[in-house]
Nucleic acid binder design. Structure first.
Lengths: 113, 113
DNA sequence: CTGAATCCATTAGGATACTG
DNA sequence: CAGTATCCTAATGGATTCAG
């Protein structure tokens, strides 16, 4: 059962990162997006951080970067097949959180106020 | 689709942490374990870090801590129902990693050597 | 045995400015 | 527009020591 821990860690490395899943979902919904579009849609992400996360996602083979190499810089990102196959996993995590996490959060938020 | 991102983050917070999943799997396999047993079975984890991760898992409701309160300190940890319900998700992540990650890792390890 | 406290190294990520 | 470089802060986790 625990013999796939290396694969677990490798997968976690890929989806850990404050904005990576938001990026993946954004690309899953829109099909593709330019750097500036992503930055506008994903509020509060800094320029540098978005660039970092995109590079890591690309290095991990989850997204594909297409540089049009025109005079006016134009780059588009989209999900790779690997990236697409990850979406159901992300959905499963969201669903688990929705049914198991909320109550904990509510209890805690009462302590915070 | 992306409306559960808060739940995603909350779930990720719970399972991020260098040893948390190893702890969860260990408890899933053995049923329960004492602090010292966990430290022996999980090689390379420091005393403090194991204590930290156990406290966080307990605070998140994924494991249950039972203090026998005997003269000779005796504490056992086991999965809560929430913790058990998370195992299939972890398995799904492992399985995805097994079928999608390995090749990337192999390609990279060639670069490292 | 279990766990808390202190000190320290590493890393992620934000702010900003600069390049092509 | 897209990307890089520098500086800075907060959080993670390891080593060690102390306490019940």
């Amino acid at each position: 059962m625990a013999k796939y821990l290396n694969e677990f860690d490798a997968t976690m490395q890929m989806i850990q990162g404050k904005w990576k899943i938001i990026i993946l979902y954004e690309l899953a919904e829109t099909g593709q997006g330019r750097f500036g579009e992503l930055q506008r849609h994903i509020q509060n992400v800094s320029h540098k951080t978005l660039a970092n996360q995109l590079r890591e996602l690309e290095a991990d083979g989850l997204i594909i970067r297409h540089d049009f190499e025109t005079a006016e810089p134009h780059v588009e990102y989209r999900l790779s097949e690997n990236g697409k196959s990850l979406i159901p996993i992300l959905d499963a995590i969201c669903t688990w959180g929705d049914t198991h996490v909320n109550h904990n959060l509510i209890e805690r938020s009462l302590c915070d106020e």
